[in-house]
Simulated scan of single mutants.
Amino acid sequence: MIKISTPGRICFFGEHQDYLGLPVIAAAISRRIQIEGDRRQDDQVILHLPDIGQKEEFSLSQSEQYGKSRDYFKSTINNLRRRGHHFSSGFECTVRGNIPINSGTSSSSALIVSWAHFLYLMSDNPANYSPKELGEIANAAEVLEFGEPGGMMDHYSTAIGHVIYLESRPAIHVEALTPKLGTFVLGDSLEPKDTLGILARCRYGMEAVIEKVQQYDSSFSIFTTPAEQTREYSQLLTQDEMSLLIANLEDRDILLEGKDLLSQTQSANGNADTDTRFGELLYKHYLNLRDHKRTSTPKIDRMMDAALSAGALGGKINGSGGGGCMFVYAPEKAEEVAEAIEKAGGKSYIITVDEGTRLEA
C-alpha cells in the first residue's frame, strides 16, 4: 500500500502575470490531497473519489484512448510511458483531500502531481524523480497533453512545496525561498470563479495593450520599462488600457520587492517590521487586482475588510478571480480573523506554508 499527499497553493505575488512571461512567487499550503492504493491482479485502474461522489475505472489497455476532453488520469499514465515506464498490472486507490475545489488553490494540479507520484512508484521500473520533475510530468499531463492555457506555477509549487520563485522567460528557472512565515487564513467566497471572463480582460486585454505600445515605442518592455514611463502613452491608450498597463508594471515591481524581502529575511515570523511590510505588499497587489484588473467581487472585498479589521496584516485574492478564494497574512489573531471571514459569508481555513508532494509513512 502506497500513500502520497500533495499540497494546494496560494500565489503571493505575480497573479495574472505568469502568462505574460513575468515571474511569480507562490507557496504550498497545509491543505492537501492524498492518494492511497496498491496494485491489482488484473490490468484495471480504479480510482474511488468519495469527496465528489465519483469513481473512475478503465483498463491499462484502454488508457491511450481518451474518453473526455480532460482525461488527466489516463494522460498521466501515457506521459510516464513516454518516459520509459511500464505497467504490467493495474491498481486501485482512493483519493481524498481538504483543498477547496474549483476555488483557485490548485486542487486539480495537486491531484495530478499526487497521481504522477503514485504512478511512477507503482510502475514496473520506478525512477527517482525530483519534485521539480514531478511538477513537469504533471504539467505535461494536465496542460500540454490537451493544449490548455496554463503555466508551470501550480505544478511546480505543489510538487516542490514551501515558497518558490518561478521565472518562465527567457528559460524556466525555479528558486526555493525559505522565509519562516507565520499563519495565514484562507477564505473561500463560495462563489464560482469567472475564469474565462477574467482572462479575456487580464490576459488578452493586456497582450493587446503591449502590442499597441510596442508599435508606438519599440523599446517598451514589460520586463524593464519603468512604471513612471507609462505617462508617455496616455494619449495612445484608453483610460481602461492605461489602468491595466500601470497595474501590471506596479505588480511586477511589487513582486521584486517581495522576493527581496522573502530572500533576505529568513526569520520573518516574529519580526514585526518584516511581517508588516509583507502584509502591505500583499495588499498593494490586491488593490491592483481589485481596482484595475477587476478580479475581485463585492463579497471578497467584504471578507478582506473584515479580516483586516480583525487583525490581518494584508492579503489578496487568489487565483483567476471573479470568485473563489482570498487569503490574508495573520501571524497573530488567526482565529479572530478566520471568524471575521466566516461572519462576512466566507468559509475560512487557518493555514501555514507546507512542504511539497511526499510519500506518507
Rank of each mutant, 00 (worst) to 15 (best):
G321S: 05
V213N: 12
E332W: 05
S263M: 09
I10G: 08
Y329H: 11
G315I: 05
Q215I: 11
H155G: 06
L166T: 04
G205V: 07
K299Q: 03
I246M: 11
Q215Y: 12
D305R: 03
Y129L: 14
R277A: 14
E332F: 01
A334W: 02
H285Q: 14
E92N: 03
I317S: 01
A344K: 02
A27S: 14
T183Q: 07
P131A: 12
G323D: 02
P170G: 07
E339D: 13
T230S: 10
N271K: 10
S103M: 01
V143K: 06
V213W: 14
T105I: 15
P179L: 08
S234I: 15
D217M: 11
A116F: 06
G315N: 05
V45K: 09
S107H: 01
R96W: 06
L49V: 15
A159R: 08
S69L: 03
P50Y: 06
K74Y: 08
S103N: 01
A268V: 15
T195Y: 03
A272W: 05
P179K: 14
Y329Q: 05
L60D: 13
T274R: 10
N248M: 09
T295Q: 02
G321T: 01
I254V: 13
P23H: 06
T76L: 05
Q266V: 15
F13V: 02
L281A: 09
D42N: 06
M206N: 01
C93N: 06
T276H: 09
